[in-house]
């Protein structure tokens, strides 16, 4: 059965998993993230395509992340991400700094089942200097043209939130194509959705164009307002008052713990 309860759907995300998640504008599974923290998930290798906001900060603050691979973490207009910043300064997580297209390219390599992808840029940067696994070769089709090769990122699990799915596990993602990249690249994909669609999404050619086939999907869980307090683009905006409260509370360890108690361990309705 593809449609499961939230807790059951998340079983595939084991401690130490390479977990890939999307940027805020694509649909972040925040209800699922809170459920993972309640379950006590740990040692995650979190890959954020290509950036993250509250999701990474919350997971880091809760001690669930061992390694973070992304291009940036912040709270946008609300300023720095407090748990991320504190963890880097304290050295409690391994940070693999990237640039946005490098994360896309490495996941695209996994989509294609190839070991690496070349990318322009990066040469002469300290991003490259701190990544021994990124190699520079001379373009074999040119002369004296150095180019960077990035090894594929093959996530164990991709996790995101989408507007709707049907009973076959087909998920409607609309124009949020990053979600397709994540699902194609990952071993397994877990999706939370606002609602279940009555019928088969692939039957309607208009909907089918924005549908991720159930073939790629391990589990779907119903989670109305499952991106809250982040936005679900085209559906609802960010809860900026709540995010401002988070930014304030997470500035101290005691405040962050209180936030977890109030909003994560207490299963408060969104």
């Amino acid at each position: 059965m593809i449609i499961r309860s939230l807790e059951t759907a998340l079983e595939a995300i084991h401690d130490g998993a390479v977990l890939a998640v999307p940027r805020e504008q694509s649909g972040v599974a925040m209800a699922a993230t809170r459920a993972l923290i309640r379950r006590g998930v740990g040692r995650l290798h979190l890959v954020a395509l290509p950036t993250s906001t509250l999701q990474a900060d919350l997971l880091i603050g809760a001690g669930a992340v061992a390694t973070l691979e992304t291009s940036a973490v912040s709270l946008g207009e609300l300023g720095p991400a407090p748990s991320f910043t504190a963890a880097i300064k304290a050295g409690t997580i391994v940070m693999k700094d990237a640039t946005c297209p490098a994360i896309y390219a490495a996941l695209q390599a996994a989509e294609k089942g190839i070991p690496f992808m070349p990318l322009r840029g990066l040469i002469g940067s300290d991003l490259l200097a701190h990544r021994p696994e990124w190699r520079v070769i001379d373009n074999p089709f040119g002369t004296n043209d150095p180019v960077v090769l990035l090894p594929a990122i093959k996530p164990d699990v991709a996790l995101f939130h989408a507007p709707m799915a049907d009973a076959q596990g087909n998920v409607w993602i609309g124009r949020q194509r990053d979600l397709s990249t994540l699902a194609h690249a990952a071993e397994r994909t877990i999706v939370t959705v606002e609602r279940l669609h009555d019928g088969n999404l692939l039957d309607d050619p208009v909907l089918a164009a924005g549908t991720l086939p159930g073939f790629y999907i391990e589990a779907v869980a119903l989670a109305p307002r499952g991106a809250w307090p982040l936005p679900l683009p085209d559906h609802y905006p960010a809860d900026t008052a709540h995010l401002a409260e988070y930014a304030k509370m997470a500035a101290t360890a005691a405040g962050f713990d209180k936030y977890l108690m109030n909003h994560v361990y207490e299963q408060r309705a969104a």
């Binding site: 940036a72 912040s74 991320f84 300064k89 050295g91 700094d97 640039t99």
Partner: peptide, 23 residues
């Protein structure tokens, strides 16, 4: 866009490089 001070023990951390390392 990354950090101030020693890379492994920075005194300040910024969000990150975003697309700059390419764009």
């Amino acid at each position: 866009l990354v950090s101030i001070g020693d890379h492994d023990k920075p005194t300040a951390r910024f969000p990150g490089s975003f697309g700059s390392g390419y764009l």
